[in-house]
Structures are given as C-alpha cells and as structure tokens.
Write a protein that binds this DNA or RNA. Structure first.
Lengths: 207, 207
DNA sequence: CAATAGTTTCAGAAACTTTTGAAAGTTTCG
DNA sequence: CGAAACTTTCAAAAGTTTCTGAAACTATTG
C-alpha cells in the first residue's frame, strides 16, 4: 500500500542518510499514485487519438521531481529502448516534454511541460484546428458542387441539391463556430478564459 | 463535375416523368458533394475515436432527402451487409440515426438525426463525461495514496509525495473544470449557449 | 582515434481493429 | 405453417497501429 522506494532501501537501512537521494534515483518501480496517474493519463490520451505510451511517459515525467533519462523511463514503464526513443521524439515535437541538460551527465534528461493549459492549447492548435479547417474547406467545396447541380435542368436533381445545400450549410456553420471557439481558446485562454466567455455570450443571442 | 443520378437515367431520357423520383431511388452512386461530405465526416469521426464508416453512413443519411435502407447504404458506400448492419446498430445506440417506418415497405429504413447540436451533446454526454469522471476518480485515489506517503517516516518519500500531490491536484482541478464545462454544455447548450458563457465568465475571474 | 556511452532507426512481430460474407435467426405474409 | 424477405451474428481475413530489439549512427572521452 505504501510506496516502494527501491529494492536497495529496505526499512532496516539507517534512514535519512546523505545518499537517500541517490538511492531514490535507483528506484525501479513506480509508486501506486504514479501507476494510477500514468495509467489514467495514458487512457485519456489514447482516447484523444495519441499513443497510450505518450500519456504514460508524460505522466511519469510530470510526477517526477527531477528530470528523467530515457533509460529510467524504460525501466519504470517496461518499454523497449526503441519505444521510449520514438515516443519521446513525438512528445518533444508536440512540445509537451523538454530536454533538460543535467550538469555532469552525458545522457539526455527529459522533463514534462507542467503548464497544463499551455500544453493542451498547443496540441489543440496544431491538431484540432488543422482538422476543422480541412473540414470547412471540404464543406465549401461540396456547397459549390451543389450550387452547380441546383442550376441543372433536371428538377429532381435540382430539388435534392437544394436540400443538400441547406444541410451542408448547417455543417459548415457548425464547423465555423467550432473553429471560432477554438481560436478564441487558443489565442487567449492560456492567459484568461474571459474572451471565450464573451464570445459565447454574443453567439448565444444570434444563433 | 455534375451529379451522376443513375446509370439508368441518361440525359436522353425524357425528363420530368412521373417516375423520375422512382428512378432517383435506383441511383447507385453518390454525387460529388455527397462523396466529399461523407469522406470528410468519416475522417472527423474517426479522429474523434469512432469508426470511419459510422461517419460515412451518417453523412449519407444526413444528405438524403428520404430515409434509406441498409441495402442502399451498402451500395452507396461499397460495404458488406455485415458492416452496414453492425454500423447502423452502433449509430442507433448512439442515437444519431433513427429507424423510420416507410409505408408499404417491409424492410427497415434509416434517417439521420439532423439536429447537429443535440446529436453532439448526446455523444459528449455518454462518452466524454464517462471518461472524465473516471479520470477524476483516479486522481482522487492517487491523492489519497500520496497523503499516506506524505505522512510516512522517510522524508525523501514524504517530500516527493508532497510535490506529487500538488501536481495531481492540478490535474484534478483541470479535469473538474473540464467536467463542469461539459455539464453546462450538455444540460443547456442545445437550447442556448448562454449559461456556458456565463460560467466561463465567472471562472475566468477566479482562476 | 579508438573505445565507450548514448540515441535513433527500421524491419519484422505482436496486438489490436475493422470488415467480410456465409450461416443462423427473425419477421412477415399468403 | 412454410417460404420469402430481411437482419443479425460471428469466425476468419484483412488492415492498421504500435512495439521490439538489434544494428546503425552520433557524440564524448581518455
């Protein structure tokens, strides 16, 4: 139930020695809280379309008082060197983990971005916005096609095109609204959620 | 570039006959706008963690003036009977597609939920809320573990537990905020976005 | 500059997800 | 009831994603 500090530091060891910290570094297992949190973050992140290990590694780093090396992460999470390397590269690309230089150490160390809001807005910005912009373009293209059809001679075709045009327009409006909310979130929310709220207040009157 | 109504209805056919509608029913291919929209909705939905075919089927139904049968969907999207059946069952479970009884027809017909907002809030309610509630519980459990550790004799363990407690608390706060926003969205936003905006306005002052 | 430490890459393996299509099941109708 | 119409199920196949671990590569140090 209590944490398992390290196999080397049994409860018989004289406690509070100077190298307690050094021993702490030799820990090979996650404590229960760390295990729970890295598991749940892994799931959340997977749910969000990333790899589970991205979430798990981020979580372990987030809960670590000090930066960790790839090797330590490998041990904690029972991953292969390759997986740790690839996952860290991905996390670095997303800007949610940083390389940290540790004095006197040759290998790289890694630390989590701890500003949750900044982190999430960064990911939203790159990922959701791209997706939604693509959708908006596609809906606009579809509407263009339907306009052409609506002007075609065949009234059956024209009638269907008109109905479809309305429906795609709904999708387009919805996507644009989503994009606006996202933009707002991204540009300012890391500082303050107020602009988003103001916007929604305005929207709610017209739509 | 223009729609392909059906291989049977070439442009030489006398147009505007009474059975133009009947011919329209024999269409076997999607028009360009339908193809674009079902593709992009398929992608969005996949991105959101559902099966691509759920999005594609929903989109075809959404753009159809009349309810469609499983067989028609199978033809339009080149799927197997099994895939159509399973996907429709899933869409029905999510409440984003309804069965529609068509007079004089023996087979089932299906229509899309066209209220976008209602649809999305329903999905959010079932899916995101469950996920976030689970995370909240897990974070609380982790904090409990860390409280125990913080009271343990070993000051190294205690110190780490305190730092970790702070961090997990951040996650917990964040998740709770997310849940609140979601609740607001779900309970009222289908009617009106205003309560959500008010809430955000309040939140932005305190934290 | 050779040995060592550390990191990345990548082809294949494993795990997981989705689809197929035939068989089983169900409902309707004469 | 029995045949026809239609739907669902499910085991196997196909497809996709993620992971492994050895080899290649890069950087550091004596």
């Amino acid at each position: 139930m209590s944490i398992e500090p390290t196999p080397l530091a049994s409860s018989e060891d004289p406690p509070y020695t100077i190298d307690a910290v050094a021993k702490d570094k030799e820990r090979e297992k996650l404590g229960p809280a760390e295990a729970i949190v890295s598991d749940v973050i892994g799931r959340l992140i997977e749910f969000w379309g990333f790899k589970r290990n991205m979430g798990r590694i981020w979580a372990v780093l987030y809960l670590s008082p000090d930066p960790l090396s790839a090797e330590e992460l490998r041990k904690f999470l029972h991953l292969s060197t390759g997986a740790v390397s690839m996952t860290l590269i991905e996390l670095l690309r997303w800007g949610v983990v940083r390389k940290v230089w540790v004095q006197g150490e040759r290998k790289d160390f890694f630390a989590a971005e701890v500003q949750l809001w900044r982190m999430i807005s960064r990911v939203f910005n790159e990922r959701e916005k791209a997706e939604i912009s693509f959708a908006i373009d596609a809906f606009e293209e579809a509407i263009h096609h339907l306009d052409t059809q609506a002007r075609s001679g065949d009234p059956v075709v024209a009638k269907r095109a008109e109905l479809q045009r309305e429906r795609v327009k709904q999708l387009l409006e919805f996507a644009k609204l989503g994009k606006k909310v996202l933009d707002m979130l991204l540009s300012t929310a890391k500082v303050d959620a107020e602009p988003l709220a103001r916007f929604l207040l305005r929207v709610s009157r017209s739509g």
